[in-house]
């Protein structure tokens, strides 16, 4: 790695992270349901070669269950952050290009949404929509767009005041044409990086809401469910059932966060040349 330049190192690192994430996700999806069927013969076993994460009180393999749970959480996280990012783009552009009144209204709304703790808001929305996957998705998607929307609003305002946009207008181009050709291409890096950095938030909220029992149903092996079940047994000495799935969640979240930072470095044309 030493004799490669920094940009190459970052690209290799980013590719490596992406592969890990995709591997965890697809492996989790491919695990059949009967692979995690319990057997009381193998209940409450500490980590071993046969069961790297040990087993739970029902004798289910925790490693496979964690992977399966991660896949579910990642699906929710990806979908929710995508919807959130798209909302952010629309709201951000509307605020920046709309009238003063629209801008003030949107800013007020963003303040309101950001003023309520996200967990509570997600629980309320998810509850109102009858819990389950759909409620959770909508809940997370509806609460996570605010900061990205603000960022995009600022970016568009700054772009609109550029001289080349003014010139374009005087060359007879319409507002829509300018939006598509001058403004949107500049927003792509913001959008992609914003989307990826939303993901860790989404997945953590999914886990915490499920943990509290307001999210996914207990039969779905989501990370939050696994953690919440293991709480009942942690006093009996089954430390592995909480610590290992929890650590996995933290690692995946950190990985995605770092991935977003790296992508920002690659996509920013003004990033350091050294």
């Amino acid at each position: 790695m030493r004799n490669l330049n920094r940009r190459t190192q970052v690209v290799i690192l980013t590719a490596f992270m992406t592969i890990i994430l995709i591997a965890v996700f697809s492996f989790g999806l491919l695990i059949p349901d009967d692979a995690v069927v319990g057997s009381f013969l193998s209940a409450k076993q500490p980590p071993s070669l046969a069961h790297p994460f040990g087993t739970d009180a029902l004798g289910r393999d925790l490693f496979l269950r964690t992977l399966k749970g991660m896949a579910v959480s990642m699906t929710v996280g990806t979908a929710a952050s995508m919807i959130s990012a798209v909302i952010a783009v629309f709201v951000g552009i509307a605020a920046a290009t709309g009238s003063k009144c629209v801008d003030a209204l949107i800013n007020w709304f963003i303040d309101v949404v950001m003023g309520v703790p996200h967990t509570i808001l997600v629980i309320l929305i998810s509850f109102a929509l009858g819990r389950g996957l759909k409620g959770l998705l909508v809940g997370i998607a509806a609460t996570h767009w605010c900061s990205l929307a603000r960022l995009i609003r600022g970016e568009v305002l700054q772009l609109r005041s550029q001289q080349y946009v003014a010139v374009s207008r005087k060359l007879g181009k319409s507002g829509g044409w300018i939006l598509v050709h001058h403004l949107l291409p500049h927003l792509v890096p913001q959008f992609v990086v914003g989307l990826i950095l939303l993901f860790p938030h989404a997945i953590l909220h999914e886990a915490s809401v499920s943990f509290l029992g307001f999210g996914l149903p207990p039969e779905q092996p989501a990370i939050g469910i696994i953690l919440s079940e293991s709480m009942r047994y942690i006093q009996t000495g089954m430390w592995w059932s909480a610590v290992l799935p929890g650590l996995t969640l933290v690692l995946i979240v950190l990985l995605v966060d770092k991935l977003g930072d790296n992508l920002r470095m690659i996509m920013d044309p003004y990033s350091a040349q050294d």
Binding site: Q162, Q163, Y164, V167, S168, K170, L171, H182, P269
Partner: peptide, 29 residues
């Protein structure tokens, strides 16, 4: 609306062109 018959040229050309556009596109605008 339309191409304005009065055109302004700025002092700093690097601000008056879209940095992400190739110059052919800049002219064709």
């Amino acid at each position: 609306k339309g191409i304005c018959p009065v055109q302004l040229i700025y002092q700093h050309p690097e601000k008056a062109v879209n940095p992400r556009w190739r110059l052919k596109r800049v002219l064709e605008e």
